[in-house]
């Protein structure tokens, strides 16, 4: 029986034909419609609500208010997991998950995207939109003022870490 099953195995192999692609030389196969590649940020549509920054599991989007009128949003891209939550939550659909996946680079800043946004003063509550559910809204209770130069996520929250009120993001040295 063993010999027969060897023949069967060989037949399976030969019946399949060559299936791998000469990938790096030839282009890759097209990706499906829903593919979640590198997120692209559209500054023209962004209203600077920071909903994406507050709900990014990887803490890859920083918010920094230079002055009353200018807010800088920075997408770091170094350990983004492409989960697509930012695109889900964006009220203005300013973030799209692109089809790009060949993003390997030697210099991480290549992946960064910076948005400089003009923020006009809000005459009302200051909350320009509501997130889809209570689990997304709650993060806004604290106050964010990220350290752009150090590329660090800073969040003053009411966490119970008494001796460490400043919850810090991981410091990764970028060179």
């Amino acid at each position: 029986m063993s010999f027969l099953s060897k023949i069967r195995e060989v037949m399976i192999c030969l019946g399949a034909g060559q299936v791998t692609l000469p990938y790096p030389v030839a282009a890759a196969e097209p990706v499906p419609e829903r593919f979640r590649g590198r997120p692209l940020f559209n500054a023209a549509q962004c209203i600077g609500c920071a909903g994406c920054a507050n709900n990014c599991p990887a803490r890859e989007i920083l918010v920094f208010d230079v002055c009353q009128e200018v807010r800088i949003m920075k997408y770091l891209g170094r350990r983004c997991t492409y989960c697509g939550r930012c695109a889900d939550l964006c009220p203005e659909k300013a973030i799209t998950m692109s089809r790009e996946f060949e993003t390997a680079t030697q210099t991480i800043p290549d992946l960064q995207q910076n948005l400089e946004l003009f923020m006009s003063t809000c005459q009302r509550c200051g909350r320009c939109f509501t997130e889809p559910g209570p689990l997304e809204q709650l993060m806004l209770k604290g106050y964010r003022f990220d350290a752009l130069a150090e590329e660090r996520w800073v969040y003053r929250s009411q966490a119970h870490l008494q001796n460490e009120p400043l919850v810090r993001d991981i410091d990764i040295e970028l060179d």
Binding site: N55, P57, T81, R85
Partner: peptide, 10 residues
């Protein structure tokens, strides 16, 4: 200590 309910699934 850091993540939220809806960030943990990811």
């Amino acid at each position: 200590s850091v993540l939220t309910y809806n960030e943990i699934p990811m």
